[in-house]
Design a protein around this nucleic acid. Structure first.
Length: 265
DNA sequence: AAGAATGTTATGTA
DNA sequence: CTACATAACATTCT
Protein backbone atom coordinates (compact mmCIF):
# COMPACT_ATOMS: atom_id res chain seq x y z
CA UNK A 1 0.00 0.00 0.00
CA UNK A 2 1.78 3.12 -1.18
CA UNK A 3 2.05 6.16 1.02
CA UNK A 4 -0.94 8.40 0.84
CA UNK A 5 -2.97 5.93 -1.07
CA UNK A 6 -6.69 5.95 -0.66
CA UNK A 7 -8.33 2.60 -0.96
CA UNK A 8 -11.79 3.10 -2.20
CA UNK A 9 -14.61 1.33 -0.56
CA UNK A 10 -15.46 -0.76 -3.53
CA UNK A 11 -12.08 -2.39 -3.46
CA UNK A 12 -12.64 -5.59 -1.59
CA UNK A 13 -10.44 -6.52 1.27
CA UNK A 14 -9.87 -9.95 2.60
CA UNK A 15 -9.68 -11.38 6.05
CA UNK A 16 -6.29 -10.60 7.53
CA UNK A 17 -4.29 -11.94 10.42
CA UNK A 18 -2.65 -9.05 12.13
CA UNK A 19 -0.73 -10.59 14.97
CA UNK A 20 -1.69 -8.18 17.72
CA UNK A 21 -0.98 -4.79 16.26
CA UNK A 22 -2.13 -1.96 18.42
CA UNK A 23 -5.11 -0.06 17.20
CA UNK A 24 -5.37 3.65 17.81
CA UNK A 25 -8.92 4.89 17.79
CA UNK A 26 -10.07 8.44 17.91
CA UNK A 27 -13.62 9.58 17.74
CA UNK A 28 -13.99 13.17 18.82
CA UNK A 29 -17.65 13.17 18.11
CA UNK A 30 -20.41 11.03 16.83
CA UNK A 31 -20.77 7.35 16.62
CA UNK A 32 -19.03 5.98 19.57
CA UNK A 33 -16.86 8.09 21.73
CA UNK A 34 -17.27 5.39 24.40
CA UNK A 35 -16.53 2.56 22.04
CA UNK A 36 -13.50 4.42 20.78
CA UNK A 37 -12.24 4.90 24.28
CA UNK A 38 -12.80 1.24 25.05
CA UNK A 39 -10.89 0.13 21.99
CA UNK A 40 -8.07 2.61 21.93
CA UNK A 41 -4.72 0.97 22.47
CA UNK A 42 -6.03 -2.57 22.34
CA UNK A 43 -4.26 -5.27 20.42
CA UNK A 44 -6.00 -6.10 17.19
CA UNK A 45 -5.82 -9.78 16.33
CA UNK A 46 -7.55 -9.97 13.04
CA UNK A 47 -9.87 -8.32 10.60
CA UNK A 48 -12.57 -10.52 9.18
CA UNK A 49 -14.25 -9.43 6.00
CA UNK A 50 -17.63 -10.84 5.17
CA UNK A 51 -19.12 -9.19 2.14
CA UNK A 52 -18.83 -5.49 2.72
CA UNK A 53 -18.84 -5.92 6.46
CA UNK A 54 -15.65 -5.79 8.46
CA UNK A 55 -15.13 -7.28 11.89
CA UNK A 56 -12.16 -6.07 13.88
CA UNK A 57 -11.33 -8.74 16.41
CA UNK A 58 -9.53 -8.28 19.66
CA UNK A 59 -9.43 -11.82 20.93
CA UNK A 60 -12.58 -11.74 23.00
CA UNK A 61 -16.24 -12.11 22.21
CA UNK A 62 -16.71 -8.51 21.25
CA UNK A 63 -15.82 -7.24 17.83
CA UNK A 64 -15.93 -3.87 16.18
CA UNK A 65 -18.32 -4.03 13.29
CA UNK A 66 -17.67 -1.58 10.49
CA UNK A 67 -19.46 -0.96 7.25
CA UNK A 68 -18.04 1.76 5.06
CA UNK A 69 -21.25 2.53 3.23
CA UNK A 70 -20.78 4.85 0.30
CA UNK A 71 -18.12 7.13 1.66
CA UNK A 72 -16.02 5.51 4.31
CA UNK A 73 -12.46 4.99 3.11
CA UNK A 74 -9.19 3.38 3.89
CA UNK A 75 -6.38 5.81 3.75
CA UNK A 76 -2.94 6.39 5.04
CA UNK A 77 -2.30 9.54 7.01
CA UNK A 78 1.39 9.05 7.48
CA UNK A 79 3.16 12.06 6.11
CA UNK A 80 -0.07 13.60 5.08
CA UNK A 81 -2.18 16.31 6.54
CA UNK A 82 -4.93 14.86 8.71
CA UNK A 83 -8.40 14.69 7.22
CA UNK A 84 -9.95 18.13 6.82
CA UNK A 85 -12.72 17.31 9.22
CA UNK A 86 -12.57 15.71 12.58
CA UNK A 87 -13.73 12.22 11.90
CA UNK A 88 -13.67 8.87 13.56
CA UNK A 89 -10.40 7.21 12.72
CA UNK A 90 -8.93 3.79 13.16
CA UNK A 91 -5.22 3.73 12.77
CA UNK A 92 -2.48 1.20 13.37
CA UNK A 93 0.60 2.10 15.32
CA UNK A 94 2.67 0.79 12.48
CA UNK A 95 1.31 3.73 10.53
CA UNK A 96 -0.10 1.69 7.75
CA UNK A 97 -3.59 2.28 6.70
CA UNK A 98 -6.23 4.14 8.58
CA UNK A 99 -9.93 4.00 8.18
CA UNK A 100 -11.95 7.14 7.74
CA UNK A 101 -15.33 6.34 9.19
CA UNK A 102 -17.09 9.56 8.32
CA UNK A 103 -20.06 8.54 6.28
CA UNK A 104 -19.78 4.89 7.24
CA UNK A 105 -23.12 3.27 7.85
CA UNK A 106 -22.10 0.99 10.65
CA UNK A 107 -19.58 1.18 13.39
CA UNK A 108 -20.44 -0.55 16.61
CA UNK A 109 -19.28 -3.06 19.11
CA UNK A 110 -21.10 -6.32 18.73
CA UNK A 111 -21.13 -9.55 20.68
CA UNK A 112 -21.25 -13.08 19.35
CA UNK A 113 -25.04 -13.15 19.19
CA UNK A 114 -25.31 -9.95 17.21
CA UNK A 115 -22.59 -11.18 14.92
CA UNK A 116 -24.43 -14.41 14.26
CA UNK A 117 -27.52 -12.42 13.36
CA UNK A 118 -25.51 -10.25 11.04
CA UNK A 119 -23.96 -13.19 9.23
CA UNK A 120 -27.30 -14.94 8.95
CA UNK A 121 -28.51 -12.05 6.84
CA UNK A 122 -25.64 -12.40 4.39
CA UNK A 123 -25.16 -14.80 1.55
CA UNK A 124 -21.81 -16.49 0.91
CA UNK A 125 -18.91 -14.18 0.14
CA UNK A 126 -17.09 -15.45 -2.96
CA UNK A 127 -13.79 -14.16 -1.59
CA UNK A 128 -13.94 -16.31 1.51
CA UNK A 129 -12.41 -19.75 1.52
CA UNK A 130 -15.34 -21.07 3.55
CA UNK A 131 -17.95 -19.73 1.14
CA UNK A 132 -20.52 -22.23 -0.07
CA UNK A 133 -21.81 -21.34 -3.54
CA UNK A 134 -24.50 -23.98 -3.23
CA UNK A 135 -26.13 -21.83 -0.60
CA UNK A 136 -26.37 -19.00 -3.08
CA UNK A 137 -27.78 -21.25 -5.80
CA UNK A 138 -30.44 -22.57 -3.47
CA UNK A 139 -31.56 -19.01 -2.80
CA UNK A 140 -31.40 -18.12 -6.47
CA UNK A 141 -33.45 -21.15 -7.52
CA UNK A 142 -36.70 -19.51 -6.47
CA UNK A 143 -35.96 -16.05 -7.74
CA UNK A 144 -37.54 -14.70 -10.86
CA UNK A 145 -35.73 -11.41 -10.54
CA UNK A 146 -33.10 -10.59 -13.16
CA UNK A 147 -29.67 -11.89 -12.33
CA UNK A 148 -28.52 -8.25 -12.36
CA UNK A 149 -30.84 -7.55 -9.45
CA UNK A 150 -29.89 -10.73 -7.62
CA UNK A 151 -26.18 -9.89 -7.67
CA UNK A 152 -26.82 -6.75 -5.65
CA UNK A 153 -28.85 -8.56 -3.02
CA UNK A 154 -26.45 -9.15 -0.15
CA UNK A 155 -28.70 -11.87 1.27
CA UNK A 156 -28.06 -14.01 -1.79
CA UNK A 157 -24.39 -13.32 -2.45
CA UNK A 158 -22.39 -10.97 -0.25
CA UNK A 159 -19.98 -8.35 -1.43
CA UNK A 160 -20.99 -7.38 -4.93
CA UNK A 161 -21.60 -3.71 -5.59
CA UNK A 162 -22.77 -1.85 -8.64
CA UNK A 163 -19.40 -1.67 -10.38
CA UNK A 164 -18.72 -5.36 -9.93
CA UNK A 165 -22.21 -6.32 -10.95
CA UNK A 166 -21.77 -4.69 -14.34
CA UNK A 167 -18.27 -6.01 -14.88
CA UNK A 168 -19.08 -9.55 -13.75
CA UNK A 169 -22.08 -9.84 -16.02
CA UNK A 170 -20.10 -8.46 -18.90
CA UNK A 171 -17.18 -10.81 -18.30
CA UNK A 172 -19.61 -13.73 -18.33
CA UNK A 173 -21.39 -12.50 -21.43
CA UNK A 174 -24.62 -12.85 -19.52
CA UNK A 175 -27.83 -11.10 -20.41
CA UNK A 176 -28.45 -9.09 -17.21
CA UNK A 177 -32.18 -9.65 -17.48
CA UNK A 178 -32.03 -13.41 -17.37
CA UNK A 179 -34.21 -14.55 -14.47
CA UNK A 180 -31.92 -15.74 -11.70
CA UNK A 181 -33.59 -19.15 -11.51
CA UNK A 182 -32.94 -19.83 -15.18
CA UNK A 183 -29.16 -19.78 -15.03
CA UNK A 184 -27.64 -23.12 -15.97
CA UNK A 185 -25.18 -24.87 -13.71
CA UNK A 186 -22.41 -23.96 -16.11
CA UNK A 187 -23.40 -20.29 -16.04
CA UNK A 188 -23.52 -20.33 -12.27
CA UNK A 189 -20.09 -21.85 -12.10
CA UNK A 190 -18.68 -19.24 -14.42
CA UNK A 191 -20.44 -16.49 -12.51
CA UNK A 192 -18.90 -17.59 -9.23
CA UNK A 193 -15.41 -17.95 -10.61
CA UNK A 194 -15.57 -14.67 -12.48
CA UNK A 195 -16.75 -12.91 -9.36
CA UNK A 196 -13.79 -14.29 -7.45
CA UNK A 197 -11.35 -13.33 -10.17
CA UNK A 198 -12.60 -9.76 -10.54
CA UNK A 199 -12.80 -9.17 -6.83
CA UNK A 200 -9.32 -10.49 -6.27
CA UNK A 201 -8.04 -8.23 -9.00
CA UNK A 202 -9.77 -5.27 -7.37
CA UNK A 203 -8.25 -6.26 -4.07
CA UNK A 204 -4.75 -6.40 -5.51
CA UNK A 205 -4.91 -3.06 -7.25
CA UNK A 206 -6.79 -1.41 -4.43
CA UNK A 207 -9.49 -0.45 -6.83
CA UNK A 208 -11.21 -2.06 -9.72
CA UNK A 209 -9.99 0.62 -12.06
CA UNK A 210 -6.45 1.43 -13.01
CA UNK A 211 -4.94 4.57 -11.58
CA UNK A 212 -1.99 6.21 -13.27
CA UNK A 213 0.95 6.13 -10.84
CA UNK A 214 1.22 9.90 -10.80
CA UNK A 215 -2.33 10.11 -9.65
CA UNK A 216 -2.00 7.72 -6.78
CA UNK A 217 -1.52 10.52 -4.27
CA UNK A 218 -3.77 12.96 -5.98
CA UNK A 219 -7.48 13.21 -6.18
CA UNK A 220 -9.35 9.99 -6.85
CA UNK A 221 -9.59 9.25 -10.54
CA UNK A 222 -12.86 9.18 -12.29
CA UNK A 223 -14.53 5.87 -12.75
CA UNK A 224 -15.84 6.92 -16.09
CA UNK A 225 -13.77 5.68 -18.97
CA UNK A 226 -11.06 4.22 -16.80
CA UNK A 227 -8.79 1.48 -18.04
CA UNK A 228 -10.07 -1.62 -16.37
CA UNK A 229 -13.74 -1.04 -16.63
CA UNK A 230 -15.33 -2.65 -19.64
CA UNK A 231 -18.84 -1.26 -19.43
CA UNK A 232 -19.45 0.48 -16.12
CA UNK A 233 -20.23 4.13 -16.74
CA UNK A 234 -18.84 3.89 -20.22
CA UNK A 235 -20.54 5.21 -23.31
CA UNK A 236 -19.10 2.49 -25.51
CA UNK A 237 -18.23 -1.12 -24.84
CA UNK A 238 -14.51 -1.46 -24.42
CA UNK A 239 -14.44 -4.67 -26.38
CA UNK A 240 -16.76 -4.13 -29.33
CA UNK A 241 -17.16 -0.38 -29.32
CA UNK A 242 -20.91 -0.64 -29.43
CA UNK A 243 -23.14 1.60 -27.34
CA UNK A 244 -23.47 0.63 -23.68
CA UNK A 245 -27.01 0.27 -22.42
CA UNK A 246 -28.03 1.75 -19.13
CA UNK A 247 -31.10 1.21 -17.04
CA UNK A 248 -31.99 1.32 -13.40
CA UNK A 249 -32.20 -2.23 -12.04
CA UNK A 250 -32.65 -2.82 -8.32
CA UNK A 251 -32.37 0.88 -7.56
CA UNK A 252 -28.95 1.35 -9.17
CA UNK A 253 -27.95 2.12 -12.70
CA UNK A 254 -26.95 -1.00 -14.58
CA UNK A 255 -24.53 -0.73 -17.50
CA UNK A 256 -24.24 -3.52 -20.02
CA UNK A 257 -23.35 -4.24 -23.61
CA UNK A 258 -26.51 -5.31 -25.43
CA UNK A 259 -24.50 -6.57 -28.37
CA UNK A 260 -22.39 -9.02 -26.38
CA UNK A 261 -24.55 -9.91 -23.42
CA UNK A 262 -27.27 -11.93 -25.02
CA UNK A 263 -29.52 -14.69 -23.76
CA UNK A 264 -28.54 -18.25 -24.48
CA UNK A 265 -24.85 -17.65 -25.07
C1' DA B 1 -24.61 24.19 -8.73
C1' DA B 2 -27.85 20.46 -9.28
C1' DG B 3 -27.79 15.69 -9.70
C1' DA B 4 -25.77 11.35 -9.53
C1' DA B 5 -23.20 8.15 -7.06
C1' DT B 6 -18.99 2.47 -5.31
C1' DG B 7 -24.65 1.32 -0.19
C1' DT B 8 -28.11 -0.15 3.12
C1' DT B 9 -32.51 -0.04 5.63
C1' DA B 10 -37.25 0.83 6.33
C1' DT B 11 -41.82 1.34 4.53
C1' DG B 12 -45.73 0.79 1.65
C1' DT B 13 -47.84 -1.59 -2.20
C1' DA B 14 -49.27 -5.54 -4.71
C1' DC C 1 -42.94 -15.11 1.05
C1' DT C 2 -41.68 -12.59 -3.26
C1' DA C 3 -41.10 -8.32 -5.74
C1' DC C 4 -40.77 -3.64 -6.52
C1' DA C 5 -40.89 1.39 -5.90
C1' DT C 6 -39.76 5.07 -2.93
C1' DA C 7 -37.58 7.60 0.61
C1' DA C 8 -34.13 8.38 3.96
C1' DC C 9 -29.43 8.64 5.52
C1' DA C 10 -24.74 11.30 4.36
C1' DT C 11 -20.73 12.70 1.47
C1' DT C 12 -18.19 13.37 -2.74
C1' DC C 13 -17.66 14.22 -7.39
C1' DT C 14 -19.10 16.03 -11.91
Amino acid sequence: MPEGHTLHRHARIQTKELGGKTLRVSSPQGWAAEAAAALDGRALQKIDAHGKHLLYRFGDAQALHVHLGLFGRFRSWKGLAPPPRETTRLRFDAGERGVDLSGATASELIDADAEAKLLARLGPDPLRADADPERAWRALDRRRIPIAAALLDQRLIAGIGNVYRAEILFACGLDPFTPARELTAAQRGELWETTRALMRAGERSGRIVTVPAAEADGPPSKLRGSDRVQVYRRDHCRRCGGPVGQQVVAARTLFWCPAEQVAGS
